[in-house]
Amino acid sequence: MSPDPLAPDPVLSAEDVSVKFGGLSALANVSLQVPSGRIVALIGPNGAGKTTMFNVLTGLQETTTGRVRFNGADISGWPTYRRGRAGIARTFQRLALFTRLSVSDNLVASWESSHRGGVFGRGRSLRQERVHQVMELLNLWPIADRLAGELSTGQGRMVELGRALCTDPHVLLLDEPGSGLDVKETAAFCDVLRTVVRGPSAPAVLLVEHDMTLVMEVCSALTVLDFGKVIACGSPEEIRNDELVRAAYLGDVSVA
């Protein structure tokens, strides 16, 4: 149950966050850390409160109690857009692309939303540079001029990831990036994700995912939620051997 003592300072953390919808407690005193430069996962059965946690972290959901810290500062009161500009980017479980813009415009719009300038001169070249870089990284060139609304789910997830990356995030929240993807697409996504977190200014990643293979493969730490409570947290090894987690979630799945 102990967090990795060697983990770097958390870039984003939640402290004792509770969210109540009327009488229903969606999250109860959940704490969570995302160390910089790492990929950590938030797992749990459906309805455990994972997406609610994401909404809390991005400011889409108000908390009943608890705080959110980002690079040491208390950002609990910040509106969503301010968190976005500060460097918290997310994707959505149900795709939320700008369907009437082309793929490249999705990325450009994202860059413009999170940065100043970008119309003329140096800002514009910075913008182009970053967008090109992301398109290259995620292999989006073949679909650059397609409308985002007509993409397949797999391509859509890539565009959402690209859109998030264009904000130059410090931390990246991925909400079930593997759902709706086939085995091949999932593998491709894993590869891309590993490339994304490489490099000096790479973002930390918090991942919500049901695909245990994906999670176990890429994550350095996991937090397990069930009915809004943290029932375990630790390295993949520890989680895999945790009795509570097996009972609540993993069942008899033995992951190699």
Partner: peptide, 24 residues
């Protein structure tokens, strides 16, 4: 220009736009 794109994203997905840094 950028304002046109902003109007579009405001229309397509205001929620996503706000997480990217658009002040709705």
């Amino acid at each position: 220009g950028p304002m046109g794109r902003r109007l579009h994203i405001l229309r397509d997905s205001p929620l996503a736009a706000s997480t990217l840094g658009v002040n709705l």
